[in-house]
Design a protein around this nucleic acid. Sequence first.
DNA 1: CGGCGGATTGAAGGGAATCAATGCTTGTGG
DNA 2: CCACAAGCATTGATTCCCTTCAATCCGCCG
Lengths: 258, 258
Amino acid sequence: MANNIPVLSAGVRAPRTIGGMSETLLIGEQLLRRAFLEASVVSVEARTSFIQTGELHAPVCIIRRGIAYRSHELSNGRKAIIDILVPGDIAGLDHIHLTRAIGEFIAADLVSYQALGGAIIRKLMKDDRLSVRVVTLIAEAHWRVEWLATSLMRLDAIERIAAFILNIYQRLRWRGLTEGTTFNLPLTQEQLGDHLGLTSEHVNRSLRQLRMARLANIDQQVVTIRDLRRLFDLARQPGGFSSARRCRNPGRGPKLAS
Amino acid sequence: MANNIPVLSAGVRAPRTIGGMSETLLIGEQLLRRAFLEASVVSVEARTSFIQTGELHAPVCIIRRGIAYRSHELSNGRKAIIDILVPGDIAGLDHIHLTRAIGEFIAADLVSYQALGGAIIRKLMKDDRLSVRVVTLIAEAHWRVEWLATSLMRLDAIERIAAFILNIYQRLRWRGLTEGTTFNLPLTQEQLGDHLGLTSEHVNRSLRQLRMARLANIDQQVVTIRDLRRLFDLARQPGGFSSARRCRNPGRGPKLAS
DNA sequence: CGGCGGATTGAAGGGAATCAATGCTTGTGG
DNA sequence: CCACAAGCATTGATTCCCTTCAATCCGCCG
């Protein structure tokens, strides 16, 4: 299983955990996932939120099927989606020591998951190995948001979308959930916009550009990566950026053929 | 001490940790801070990085004096600052289980800190109480970045700056590091821009607007909050936003008198 | 069929970046 | 002690990416 590989959001070189810990981590991973197997499987329909903001003693969930996301609701009804959850992801680990959930968990399509209460996880964490794995899982989620923030700061629309596609692509691959360069992405353009800090209209236009440039297709919630290499060039990785959004220096890096 | 209060970045209502855990948390906190006291105090000058990207076995640091920040270097030389560290903050907790540091830690002004190696922290974490506190500290850093990402997505320049000022203000207050509404902020406008996803020029213009509107002053690295109430209105909090950046609905919320 | 949510496309406006100068401090060396 | 350089702050003019507003189209379902 590839689950012990820390995944950085944009599909960057995955940060490595301490080499000597890997066996411990693996065992912790197994213990944790085994614990979730005991829980009953819950299914929720698309567009329903299965954990609400402020919910008391919200559980920790492992996503089994479908795509979910975590979002912050703004009082005018719009949302800021700050994490995307794919099958195998364990979500809501901050509920372990939190009385009230921060943010809302919403199913993008038909999602099934298994949930454990914070108290149970706290008990399980008496085991050092599992505890270590929980810490690394939280750290992974942290890196994802960090990279999201970084790309919001310094990449423009197309670059952000490219980075996002690669991010999801790599996470799905590491989990063995996709073979080729095609995968399902049950998000509306508005949700994409809410995740990338764009309007749905501009997401639409940017997707068209990606399609025209033959880098990637997103139609009917199906993503097809056409040119992985150039997509990587667009989605400049941290530590290996070729240039940034705001670049006084000459040479703005790869451009799309307009 | 107020250190057991989880702090959300924008100065939002602080998320509460499990009530019954508070004593455990407090003890864990004390154990952790006590451990750091043993370490020798290191001082670094302004603008020097004391942990480099990719550094092997980077330590965990507690900031004792000054302001530091964590940033991701982009290959064209520009930076994305993804966390600000004030005295009392424990930084680099993800190094506990990571062979190589992600991101760089830089002193904004004269900073002194104490550092413990990941191995030591791992050993300390055999103690459940300390382990719990470490997890909550990581979660706090996570919420900070989440809110940063949210504000990058949905707030405009002035709102982001307002949110940022309040964020720092509240963190300093919770630590008892400032009394009134004035505090020191040793960041250049360029660094502010790198943290908020703006250019230094636009930071400058926005600061002027804040000054003109008599909301806050930032001069010579000294912040003076003039109108806390209206500043809060500008920096819309998660869960309590009055409106967002992109708002098709009428009534865009508080505006500055131009 | 009509309605609805989502995708698509166009036109116009705005917020922020870019480019370009000019002050203002500070520290350094002559 | 002054001159000068370097870094930062400030300001203006211009450009452009993205939002906003407004329609239309499409697929789906009651």
